[in-house]
Design a protein around this nucleic acid. Structure first.
Length: 306
DNA sequence: AACTACTCCAACCGCAGTCTT
DNA sequence: TAAGACTGCGGTTGGAGTAGT
């Protein structure tokens, strides 16, 4: 497969965008729309590569982008979606209107990962009956980055082996979810139509007609975003067993009332009784399950993880 | 006030899926 | 069918800003 020429082409601007460049990009997209990123910079009069333009637009200039002030609700949702999906930032961002994958990724790396790690360590300590903080000689990735080259050498032993221990754990690279969508007639829709699409007629590319789910699904029950959305909106019902996530991405459900866990089966509706939307999501989802005998939560969630 | 350590986030990089010819 | 082009994604980095000493 061929690769697009890299941004490092001679003569192109790099680094932070100026107000003028932003203006040119906004002006061009307002007049001609998104897409054709490759040829856009030239036509817009920008000395940038298309990739850079796309990134700037998607992450910063697009209308309706929310910036900063992540609410506790959003934070909670991010944590739960991350437990469900791992580092699939674009999927997570798709469930948080106005938030970009880059912002969520940054927020996770700078705020939430630490918080979650601390919680997990605390849980583990509690489970093992260990009291008080356990000091460990850990150099985090962030700390290392802030060191000078000399300092970095100093934490490398004489054999050139690094002594530092990164606490960051890389999950296996996820398989990309198909960006191609089709309408009920089987005609392909533009890229990006799948995510967040409010068109209820969109079906997943890989589905054969016999596998197609009932049409006119509510948006949050669309293939490709369904299980995730349903799970994320039905607060407290769906959890992932942390260890199993790392091994097999297996899905578990947790019953808050009975405090029991069982595999991939809805047990109760949302704990927030006053949240009618959450209730409705759950009802719709159950309806879907009963309508489609073969459809189980497990395959539903797994369809996102494959 | 000066220096160092650390945090945060915009931007870049490279890979991989999909489209086009 | 193959190869190039395009696009989207997640990981990583650079450097400005802030906190601590």
């Amino acid at each position: 497969m061929g690769r697009a020429p890299c941004c490092s082409k001679v003569g192109l601007h790099r680094g932070p965008w100026s107000v003028k460049e932003d203006g040119l990009l906004i002006q061009y997209i307002q007049a001609h729309g998104e897409g054709h990123w490759k040829s856009m910079p030239k036509r817009a009069g920008l000395l940038r590569c298309g990739k850079s333009c796309r990134l700037r637009w998607m992450n910063y200039l697009r209308p309706n982008i929310k910036r900063g002030n992540v609410t506790p609700d959003e934070e909670d949702l991010i944590v739960r979606l991350h437990a469900l999906l791992g580092n699939r930032w674009s999927l997570i961002a798709g469930r948080l209107p106005g938030r970009t994958d880059n912002e969520i990724k940054n927020y996770w790396n700078s705020h939430l990962s630490k918080k979650v790690n601390e919680n997990n360590h605390q849980k583990n300590r509690n489970n093992r009956g260990i009291k008080g903080p356990k000091k460990r000689n850990i150099v985090t990735a962030n700390k290392v980055r802030s060191l000078s080259n000399k300092q970095k050498q100093e934490i490398t032993n004489e054999n050139g082996e690094t002594k530092m221990t990164k606490i960051k754990v890389h999950q296996p690279k996820p398989t990309r979810v198909s960006a191609v969508a089709r309408n009920v007639s089987g005609n392909s829709l533009p890229r990006g139509s799948c995510a967040n699409n409010s068109n209820n007629n969109i079906l997943e590319e890989s589905q054969t007609p016999s596998e197609q789910l009932p049409q006119q699904l509510p948006p949050y029950l669309l293939p490709g975003s369904t299980a995730m959305t349903a799970a994320s909106n039905i607060e407290g019902v769906l959890l992932l067993d942390e260890d199993l996530v790392n091994v097999s991405d297996e899905c578990y459900c947790y019953d808050h009332r009975q405090e029991t866990t069982s595999s991939c089966e809805f047990l109760i509706p949302a704990k927030e009784e006053n949240n009618s939307m959450l209730q409705k999501i759950f009802e719709d989802y159950q309806e879907l399950l009963s309508a489609e005998d073969g459809v189980q939560m497990e395959t539903f969630v797994n369809s996102l993880l494959i």
